[in-house]
Design a protein around this nucleic acid. Structure first.
Length: 572
RNA sequence: GCGGCUGUAGCUCAGCGGAUUAGAGCAUCGGUCUACGGAACCGAGGGUCGGGGGUUCGAAUCCCUCCAGCCGCACCA
């Protein structure tokens, strides 16, 4: 189906085109009418006419029959009120459309999304939360839009720390080490290795020798390294499952994956004449980057000690994603501190011809998760907060709330529900604020059923489902028609027709919070409707209409939440 | 020093391809309703949109500047 926005816009566009072909009507939602077109003022300036007069002209020329009524307001706004016929036909189309008006991409794009990226043998912690949650939401949104998504979990699985980690593993004994890692005791393991490395010179020497062996490809060393990787990935997977994150083990393509490509990266940069030796290291100096002394800033591709740094790996990854994965778009859901580094990587990749113009490459950055003191979220003792602990605490609290409400669920389904609520709370809190801002991690607020929270949206959905359960019989829309006799019904209907715009806006701007805002607004329209308009106790055509509105709202909430990675339980 | 991000009601945040009286949630206060699940709804108070300039008929939104906070600035990713 064609979205309501597109229908109105196309009609308006024809009239704008008569003035200046391609002129943008700047159509958007309005508080004063259903839609408003703000494009007249800019256009009037462009063609040197009076805005008011031009607005009248366009309003007169636009063929809006059967679609909307229009009036000119203020300096030259076009206020549009959708016609009852259009509302009825669009809502009926919505009933038949499992996608609720959201278009599928005509040409599917391949989108590579790099997200989560924890380190092997390190705990998944709050620092990984945002990348994981935002990246997964973007992955789901792109899938829904019809793109081919290739998720890449760029785990830190290489580098000097692995010398000490492997030696520590040997000291513990493989069995013991695996047992420790498999229960997610990654921090203890890592810190154990670190402590020995710092205190024991003999250990330090072994660790260094082990790094050399690892890099040289020694089979036994590689086998031990693989144990660390496998155990860590297994543990990450359990947390992803707990959070309902769609990353799979096969999406783990860590730094080590690119090892064999690094020589080629350097050789090709050299061949392209981009490589410069500086301070013993091999560098590329992309234009426009300077250090604190205003000198050109290098991207160090090969270190003085002959080792490769992360710049080389990242360049290899760009190349791989473009030429082997055929990415049309690459998203890096990575913290803000890496902004400059990534910009330099893109710049060098473009210089080297590895990143064609048509491939969109974007850093999806985000702010910090703050503790109650508004500083970086840490435990009282200053340690990083484990993601597992955070999720479990949220589940416990949600469960307590369910228990006190005596919901009559058996324990298994109650805990399962609590898990769904906890995930919704954590994810929605993360997704609903503008990405770039920091936010305070406050479980009380996240888990509240009042206000702009995940659980509130879930609750709105569950209330609707309960209506259909009470119906006692399967429901089908039948011949529902939408008279929209009350303001609350009309407001709700208008909200329902807005999903395509909200979804596209959120996806194009890579800002899931736009979709969250939409869903919360819809939920509020719903509760007003719900209060004002009896459903089950109404009769005939009105009852059919209201049931249909309930069905559409429930489906909209369900789809909206699902593309954000949030469950919509049937009852709460 | 250079660069980036942030600064909107008591608190948490929307809005920022300029446009009609700056929105919401929480909290506070006041109402509604013997409730299709009250984990509800309606309403009120509360803001010189960090300060100052500029562009414009019009700026929270664009430009400049200052202030505050956070982050980055060569071999750890």
């Amino acid at each position: 189906m064609t979205s309501t926005y597109d229908i109105v816009r196309e009609r308006l566009q024809a009239a704008f085109d008569e003035v200046v072909p391609g002129a943008d009507p700047v159509l958007r939602r309005s508080e004063r009418s259903d839609y408003q077109a703000n494009g007249v003022m800019a256009l009037a300036k462009q063609v040197g006419r009076s805005p008011r007069e031009l607005a009248e002209h366009i309003a007169g020329r636009a063929d809006l029959s059967g679609v909307a009524s229009v009036e000119v307001a203020g300096p030259g706004f076009l206020n549009l009120t959708l016609s009852p016929q259009l509302l009825d036909s669009q809502l009926r189309a919505l009933l038949e459309d499992p996608r609720l008006g959201v278009a599928v991409a005509r040409r599917p794009r391949t989108v590579v999304i790099d997200y989560s990226a924890p380190n092997v043998a390190k705990e998944l912690h709050v620092g990984n939360l945002r990348s994981t949650v935002i990246g997964d939401a973007l992955a789901r949104m792109h899938r829904f839009a019809g793109s081919t998504v290739i998720a890449r979990n760029h785990v830190g699985d290489w580098g000097t720390p692995f010398g000490m980690l492997i030696e520590h593993l040997l000291d513990l004994g493989e069995e013991e080490a695996i047992a420790s890692l498999s229960i997610g005791d990654l921090n203890t393991f890592y810190q154990g290795a670190r402590a020995k490395f710092d205190a024991d010179d003999a250990f330090k020497d072994r660790a260094r020798a082990r790094v050399v062996a690892l890099q040289a490809g020694d089979p036994e060393t590689r086998r031990l390294w693989q144990i660390l990787v496998d155990q860590s990935v297994r543990y990450f997977t359990t947390i992803y499952a707990e959070l309902d994150v769609s990353l799979r083990p096969e999406d783990v393509v860590g730094e080590s994956y690119y090892n064999d490509m690094l020589d080629g990266v350097v050789a090709d940069l050299d061949r392209a004449g981009l490589l410069v030796e500086s301070g013993g290291a091999l560098c590329v100096f992309p234009p426009g980057f300077t250090n604190r002394d205003n000198e050109p800033l290098p991207l160090i591709v090969k270190k003085r000690d002959e080792g490769y740094g992360y710049a080389a790996t990242d360049l290899a990854a760009v190349r791989d994603r473009v030429s082997n994965l055929h990415a049309d778009e690459i998203l890096y859901v990575v913290g803000t501190p890496q902004a400059q580094h990534l910009d330099m990587v893109y710049a060098v990749a473009r210089l080297a011809g590895w990143l064609p113009e048509h491939v969109r490459c974007e850093h999806v950055s985000f702010g910090h998760v703050l503790g109650p003191d508004r500083k970086m979220f840490k435990t009282r003792s200053g340690e990083t907060v484990k993601l597992m602990g955070l999720v479990n605490e949220a589940i416990e609290r949600a469960d307590e709330a369910l228990v006190t409400r005596a919901s009559g669920l058996d324990e298994a389904s109650r805990v399962s529900l609590a898990t769904q609520i906890a995930r919704a709370a954590i994810k929605y809190a993360d997704l609903s604020t503008e990405r770039q801002r920091d936010y305070v991690f406050d479980l009380d607020r996240m888990l509240a059923f009042e206000g702009d929270t995940g659980p509130y949206l879930q609750y709105a959905h569950a209330r609707l489902r309960s209506i259909f359960r009470r119906l006692g019989a399967p429901w089908s829309p039948g011949g529902a028609t939408f008279a929209l006799g009350t303001q609350a019904e009309r407001d709700l209907a208008l909200g329902l027709l807005g999903l395509p715009e909200a979804f596209e806006l959120a996806l194009n701007s890579l800002q899931p919070n736009r979709l969250c805002n939409y869903l919360f607004d819809l939920a509020q329209r719903l509760t007003s409707f719900y209060e004002a308009c009896p459903v089950l106790s109404s009769e005939g055509a009105v009852r059919a209409e209201r049931l249909a509105l309930c069905d559409l709202t429930a489906r909209t909430l369900e789809i909206g939440l699902s593309v954000l990675g949030i469950d919509a339980p049937e009852q709460m």
